[in-house]
Amino acid sequence: MTIDPGRAGDRVVASARGIAKEYRMPGGTVHALRGVTLDVERAVYLSVVGPSGCGKSTLLHLLGGVDLPSTGTVTLLGHDTAGLSDAALARLRLHHVGFVFQRFFLLQMLTAEENVGLPMLEAGVPTPERRARARALLDRVGLSARLDHRPGQLSGGEMQRVAIARALANRPALVLADEPTGELDEATGREIGRLLRSLTQDDIAVVVATHNPDLAADTDRQIRMKDGTVA
């Protein structure tokens, strides 16, 4: 599937219309989201806050196309995610969405540069360009001296910065960060917050799900969730 550049150029990067997500469990049905409606525009820095289990991560997963809503519609770069095949949705994520995870999920056997280059490798970016872009991204997150270091040789904050550089590898329109400061100390969390905010200067929409009030306070817009709904 190729992404229509005109649709990809719309101001709204992702939108949710009345989405609900239910999980059928042995003990009954869990309603993770109930009728959430939301627009995410370009260059916005948006936070989703609320207590554990309120549906923050689920909302991010649905907005990023890693999961599909039980009801309602998620539109990502103009495409209804429920209408796309697994391959088309994967391609959409590869080229237009960056993910930052609480646990970083860096590949331990790769260097920082190789971890950042991974999405580009999957996208077929030629080696010289891939290496140059990976180095530039690591320079941008302040890790130009750590190109050849493996995750085990980096601190938590450094690993999260590598993960942010990786999320930016294919120049996404949307970055989704799920508890990006969850495993970091306060000072390092502030650094990561500043870094995420800086992404909006490149017209990237950034959505963070967080418990961290400082991080949320620094965003353009806060969405407060409770029991699967926007409070």
Partner: peptide
């Protein structure tokens, strides 16, 4: 499995 899920989220297809 976390890494595999990350690779899928990053854009690798099931196949």
């Amino acid at each position: 499995v976390g890494e595999i899920a990350m690779l899928r989220a990053l854009g690798m297809t099931r196949s």
